[in-house]
């Protein structure tokens, strides 16, 4: 039973990891490419981690939450790295298919420049 659950989760996760990388390779500009790895790949890795937990629980060692460490860490870090990369691309003027929004008048984040 747990083995079947792990198999389904593994296939689900591998599919979404593949979709994320396909988006990274095929989408037209950087800001659209940012979508693939940050969402689809994170979901895929979450499914793989869940499969790992199911497999570890099924292999006689009982349920352990140690495997959740990777999942929690990735859920915290993936949005942060996506935000930092997007901000770097916006500041550097990376070519975009649609013009980026004009900066707000009272935005005081020029001090980070």
């Amino acid at each position: 039973m747990l083995e079947a659950l792990a198999s389904v989760l593994i296939l689900f996760g591998a599919f979404f990891v593949l979709v994320g990388s396909l988006g990274l390779a095929r989408l037209p500009d950087f800001f659209t490419r940012l979508h693939g790895p940050t969402k689809a790949t994170t979901l895929g890795l979450a499914a793989v981690c869940a499969a790992f937990i199911a497999f570890a629980a099924g292999s006689g060692n009982g349920l352990s939450v140690r495997e959740l460490l990777i999942l929690v860490f990735l859920f915290i870090t993936a949005p942060v790295s996506a935000f930092v990369l997007g901000r770097a691309a916006l500041r550097r003027g990376t070519p975009s298919m649609t013009p980026p929004p004009a900066p707000l008048e009272d935005a005081d984040d020029d001090r980070h420049r």
């Binding site: 996760g13 490419r33 990735l74």
Partner: peptide
């Protein structure tokens, strides 16, 4: 950089 980021996440999987 984004490709490297994706590559390490794929490596974890």
């Amino acid at each position: 950089v984004l490709a490297l980021d994706t590559l390490y996440i794929n490596t974890i999987a």
